[in-house]
Design a protein around this nucleic acid. Structure first.
Lengths: 363, 363
DNA sequence: GTTGCTTACGATTTGCGTAACGATA
DNA sequence: TATCGTTACGCAAATCGTAAGCAAC
């Protein structure tokens, strides 16, 4: 058994059980990969893959167990290499972040730009995905961090989730929209009475928008649903309806021709998390980036959480409904952090709201 | 970086930073090992070892981190090999157990003999050590299991401790000893009034013997202290004093010329644990052995505990002093098993006392 | 016919052992 | 001088690429 064989094994699976594709990704030849696989199977004494004819169909039950271990090994070799690169102050490197469109477009560029100023040798890969895809990429070890938004801590195993900031939806309307002309902020019921333009993910029952309207007993009509905030703005300008989008996506320029309605407190806050793989060694520049992104979490605490065997320990702030308005609880719920597992969330310097943060990030 | 290099690296450390010694253990030549180490250090870009002249003195700080990862990798390769050997029904194998003299001599042979009847191809290595040494060997991955005794769960990280049985001390006296002639069982105070022959470990303040006499406000005189139960018996026969030794070490034949005093309840019970390395894959025959040794723990539960990331979950039975006598609590203490971490100890079929167990084991 | 895995063969590289060398105490 | 690690060299084995073969769709 060699590390090469294990690398090839993982590559074959990641290439969808296609040896030819795996070989090309590995910069190796197809017969070479094939032979190494055969050697490994001979040594182990059973087939790792289920075959149909000569093609690979999937993993055998025993093979799946082997692969599980192999991935740990490969992850640790990557860790050793990262440790080494850091120790010799290697200036070159890569930071791969999987995130959503909104973060990639409106939030992360500023902080990643600062990272590149500090470490010019670092190449940043920033790819937008759905939240689930981003977490899957993180789990597979394809990226160093995932930045996702959800009201609760992302449900994934073997990861550390760190809250970055909280944000809410903002409402954009054409200037001559009835709600824009009103003298007071709109209510949820009033908003639900107009066609809406918002994210496609709002159709999911656990989205903050669905929760808010659900609590108010209203089911609004979505005139247009998309993943792209710019498309939402364009549709609003075209008069398709009232736009509901992440407050981070609203720029000064938008206020020039659109009305920004006051919907503060109407919708539950979301939290944006940076999710890291526990046990995955991050290069020093990644820690520098994180120190910029989540200054409210100490570097030492973060390293401890990454290495520790305990449950993820950074407790999310929780929102709840109080008298028809959604509020953040001032303190983390005590039943969620038994003393042995959880270091209480640092609230001396809490995660800031997106609006405040953006002022810092983009200024 | 290759698996060979990592294996060599670990071997060098295990050989006390002596490349020559490591090479001989690895069945390799010294220049070969030396060269692989050099290659690895060249690839990483820094020295793993601190040198004095040419000799290795110890690990560099960065080297220590590398080794930590390397050990995980080596452990996982061993796991893959174990999985494979099991999957192809490999009949040959080895079971290495580190334990104490008493267990190795009086308790484990019966169950290990049954294992060998079931799996004749298995070689058993059974070496007596101190409790600390046994746990150290387990932690280093040198043995599959450690069998140790202590009133509380062994304090070690990354292990699963399973209670096997509870036992107490027995008292042996020459037939004409004053306490042997008494018509009623002796008290602690009476025992403390005579010279004792017992284990050297009884001198430690946390030993069950020291605790019992401490609670009674007595400090007995040890006429002879040894690790070997047979030596204790011989000293008792020689009239050196009253023998206190593990009840498992008392055989029928001893009752022929020595008096076995009734000391039931005078000394706190010890629990014998089988300690396993979490994440370490055990061959099927080891599970068979464990099923025989700890029939009160389900095979599936054990496998889950070995793989799971949670804290060791098998709660020890606790003893406490009640009205001058030591008793077992009927139930595990509720404050010790928060629901998320601990599967309650199965008391439908509780661990039996040593005396009962021996009847089964040796019969 | 196209896709995809296996086998065969030869060039290159790598690993490993023997032997000589060097440094330390 | 003995111990221990490094360097040098040569043989044997493994690796990898090219090319041919073969099965499935």
């Amino acid at each position: 058994m060699t590390l090469t064989q294990l690398r090839y094994l993982a590559a074959i699976i990641d290439a969808g059980f296609n040896i030819t594709e795996a070989a090309s990704r590995l910069n190796a030849t197809q017969p070479g990969v094939s032979k190494q696989l055969k050697q490994m199977e001979d040594e182990l004494g059973f087939q790792i893959f289920v075959r149909r004819g000569k093609s690979l169909e999937g993993l055998s039950p025993a093979g799946a167990k082997v692969v599980e271990r192999a991935r740990v090994i490969l992850s640790e070799t990557a860790n050793i290499r990262a440790l080494a690169a850091d120790h010799r102050n290697e200036a070159r490197g890569e930071l791969a972040v999987a995130t959503t469109y909104t973060q990639a477009r409106f939030v992360l560029p500023a902080t990643l730009a600062r990272l590149r100023t500090l470490h010019p040798g670092i190449d940043v890969r920033l790819n937008p995905h759905s939240e689930a895809e981003a977490l899957a990429l993180l789990g597979a070890g394809a990226v160093d961090a995932a930045v996702v938004s959800s009201p609760d801590r992302p449900a994934a195993t073997g990861v550390v989730a760190v809250p970055v900031y909280r944000w809410s939806l903002a409402a954009l309307a054409p200037r001559r929209h009835p709600l824009a002309a009103a003298s007071r902020p709109p209510t949820l019921r009033e908003i639900a009475g107009h066609p809406l333009v918002t994210y496609a993910s709002a159709q999911r029952p656990d989205s903050s928008l669905a929760r808010a309207f659900g609590a108010a007993g209203r089911a609004p009509r979505l005139a247009c649903a998309t993943r792209d905030a710019e498309v939402i703005k364009t549709c609003v300008r075209a008069g398709m309806g009232l736009g509901l989008l992440a407050e981070m996506a609203v720029a000064e320029a938008d206020a020039a021709d659109l009305a920004v309605l006051d919907v503060d407190g109407l919708f539950p806050l979301n939290t944006t998390w940076v999710v890291l793989r526990r046990g995955h060694v991050l290069r020093g520049y990644v820690h520098d980036w994180l120190a910029d992104l989540v200054p409210h979490v100490g570097r030492r605490d973060l390293r401890a959480a990454m290495e520790g065997g305990a449950e993820p320990w950074i407790e999310p702030p929780h929102w709840r409904e109080v008298r028809g308005r959604f509020q953040l609880e001032a303190e983390p719920r005590s039943d969620l952090h038994p003393a042995r597992n959880v270091v209480p969330f640092e609230i001396a310097q809490p995660p800031v709201r997106a609006a405040e943060r953006l002022a810092v990030s983009c200024g």
